Simulated scan of single mutants.
Amino acid sequence: MTLVAPHFRARQLGARPFPGRRRAPRLATVLTGAGVALVPWMLVLAKTLPQTTEVSNWSTAWIGLDLMLAAGLTGTGALLRTRDPRASPVAAATAALLVMDAWFDVTTSAGTPEQGMALLLAVAAELPLAAACAVVAARRAPHGQGQGQGRGQGR
């Protein structure tokens, strides 16, 4: 009986095979609604935000982002080295942070002498690293129930 898949074993015992399964459509609706609700908000921001502004804690914001990038990149590398299945979500988050970093570097440097360096770093470093992390995330994502059942993680 222990070799039977959990959902079959649950059916035999009269339990619901996948508890909490009904929550996924509700969550999907909430997330989709939140994404759609951002569209009119972006229009409001486009019309009301100033083109320039002075920002306090500018260096703290950028150092914090770079700290998260350093943690994500070294964490992904360390998890890959040990073939840990948690490399996938860490790599996915790191890819998103790298794309965000490239976007903000390029857009905030527009029209300044630093724009060339921002574009170079985006094209030569941040976006290629983001693509590599996205590949890691996609290839190592679990494809079954439970930890360790993604590609290369079978038993």
Rank of each mutant, 00 (worst) to 15 (best):
A37W: 03
W103D: 15
W62E: 11
V135C: 08
P40D: 01
D84W: 10
L121H: 15
L119D: 14
A124T: 14
A70F: 08
A5V: 10
A24Q: 12
Q51I: 14
R22P: 03
T53H: 10
A118T: 08
L79R: 15
A134K: 08
A15Q: 14
P142D: 15
M68F: 13
R86N: 11
A87Y: 02
R155W: 09
Q115P: 07
V136I: 07
R26N: 05
R26G: 14
P85C: 04
T29E: 13
V55M: 11
H143P: 05
P128F: 01
E54P: 02
V99K: 08
V90C: 03
A78F: 09
A95H: 06
R21E: 13
H143S: 09
T108G: 02
T32R: 14
Q147K: 07
V90H: 01
T32M: 05
R21M: 13
G72C: 03
R139F: 11
V90L: 07
G144E: 05
P17C: 09
V4Q: 13
M42D: 12
L79G: 11
I63P: 00
L80C: 11
T108V: 02
R86E: 12
G150W: 01
R140M: 06
V135I: 14
L43H: 13
L129P: 01
L73T: 01
G111F: 09
A122N: 02
T112W: 02
G75E: 06
A91Y: 05
R16Y: 03
S59P: 01
A46T: 15
R26E: 03
T52I: 02
T29G: 11
T74Y: 00
A71R: 13
Q115W: 14
W103N: 15
V44G: 03
Q145Y: 10
G111K: 09
A131N: 08
H7I: 00
V136T: 12
G146F: 05
T112I: 11
R140P: 01
K47A: 15
V106N: 05
F18C: 12
F8M: 15
W103F: 12
A70K: 03
